[in-house]
């Protein structure tokens, strides 16, 4: 059980790193738009289809 004296501080270091990463991500603006990111995963799939006809998209130019 003496290992607790080592393991708990190690766990705390992990927590500190985790919090640091989270705060960095928030300040970096990565959570600024929670809704869209949830949709992006679906949108990506559609993009592959769209890639097949990029010419058509360009022909829309006036």
């Amino acid at each position: 059980m003496d290992s607790l004296y080592l393991l708990i501080p190690v766990a705390l270091v992990f927590v500190a790193v985790g919090i640091k990463l989270l705060l960095w991500a928030i300040d970096n603006g990565q959570y600024d738009d929670l809704d869209k990111e949830a949709w992006r995963i679906i949108a990506e799939e559609q993009k592959h289809d769209a890639k097949h006809q990029p010419e058509e998209g360009k022909r829309q130019q006036p």
Binding site: D35, W39, A43, Q46, P54, K58, Q61
Partner: peptide, 17 residues
């Protein structure tokens, strides 16, 4: 109004030269 709007705008602008 919603996330689909953002998707629509992004995807109709992105292919434009």
């Amino acid at each position: 109004t919603c996330a689909a709007c953002t998707w629509l705008i992004e995807n109709s602008l992105a292919p434009v030269t």
